[in-house]
């Protein structure tokens, strides 16, 4: 039975991830005074899209068709390394955090290739911006992971978020809070949320993530959406796992519920932020990310001392 626990972790992530998009949209609707779409809207969308066929333009090549499933596979592989609440990760080995970051990078690479493959200038522009911002966000993510591994004395995600447990908070709580904050910024930029990109925009000129999926349809867009939901889950697990490590509440179901609650809270916070904050000017985004990188280096220096 104990060996099956990691599988629970995977099942929770796979089933609950699309729920978070519903939470974000409901919070945004609440702030706008609307009722909002149902919490399960993304499930309905994905179900509907999967039943449709895809249309492929004659300009597109093999990458356009390959990218959505390949991206989803990369994200699913990355998910195997993420511990969740009371359950350890399915796979772990020393240094797996590097692999996870590069799996996320590979998924992004697939999206960029697919976007460039369409020959649409809007998609090319979205891809260019995404590539630009990812240079910063990936570095920031690595710095955060480095700080976490110094704090926990482990170089695998499972060790940092699961095995280390509450011990990670004995080193220096204020510094870890900074790491959590920077991880949240990484979550926002990697998931194309508001200060960095606006998921609701209808103007192609201002899109980043949406521009890259303009020409996909049917099952392809369903795979993109699902991969995006899982990516949110993965990146939300890092600050959630830091804030509420396993061991603070040592019963399995309580801890899983707590973990789910924290991730839903992250989603709600994102929705609230999205309702209150305006989008940054594109020139300001690298500056903001440089500041985030500076914060994570500061945390790293403090922890390495």
């Amino acid at each position: 039975m104990n060996n099956l626990y990691p599988l629970f972790n995977l099942i929770i992530a796979l089933t609950a991830a699309p729920l978070m998009s519903g939470v974000i949209n409901r919070v945004k609707a609440f702030f706008a005074g609307r009722k909002g779409p149902p919490l399960l809207q993304l499930y309905f969308d994905i179900g509907k899209l999967l039943r449709k066929g895809a249309v492929y333009s004659r300009t597109t090549g093999v990458f356009f068709r390959l990218a959505p499933p390949a991206g989803l596979v990369f994200i699913l592989t990355a998910l195997l390394f993420i511990p969740c609440g009371a359950y350890p990760a399915v796979l772990f080995f020393p240094g797996d955090m590097v692999l996870v970051v590069y799996l996320l990078g590979a998924q992004r690479f697939c999206m960029l290739l697919a976007a460039l493959d369409t020959g649409s200038s809007f998609e090319g522009m979205g891809a260019s911006r995404d590539a630009h911002f990812s240079v910063f966000s990936e570095a920031v993510l690595f710095l955060c992971l480095a700080a976490m591994s110094v704090a926990s004395g482990s170089v695998s995600l499972n060790g940092m978020l699961f095995t280390a447990g509450g011990r990670i908070w004995q080193v220096s709580p204020p510094v870890l809070l900074v790491v959590v904050f920077v991880l949240y910024i990484v979550l926002l930029v990697e998931n194309y949320r508001v200060p960095f990109d606006d998921p609701n925009t209808h103007l192609e000129l201002t899109m980043i993530h949406e521009a890259m999926a303009l020409d996909h349809g049917g099952p392809d867009i369903a795979m993109f959406e699902y991969a995006a939901a899982l990516k949110f889950w993965i990146l939300a697990s890092l600050p959630a796992g830091l804030l509420f490590p396993y061991g603070m509440k040592p019963d399995f179901f309580g801890n899983s519920a707590l973990f789910l609650g924290v991730i839903a809270l992250t989603a709600a916070l994102t929705g609230a932020l999205e309702s209150c904050a305006a989008r940054l000017r594109l020139v300001k985004v690298p500056q903001m990310l440089t500041a985030a990188a500076a914060l994570s280096v500061v945390a790293l220096i403090f922890l390495a001392k």
């Binding site: 690298p286 500056q287 001392k305």
Partner: peptide, 21 residues
């Protein structure tokens, strides 16, 4: 500029930690 200044701040912190060690 602002970004370069922030990077200097980080470098200064690193230097300060090195010196104080």
């Amino acid at each position: 500029g602002a970004s370069t200044s922030i990077l200097f701040g980080v470098a200064a912190l690193g230097t300060a930690f090195f010196i104080s060690s």
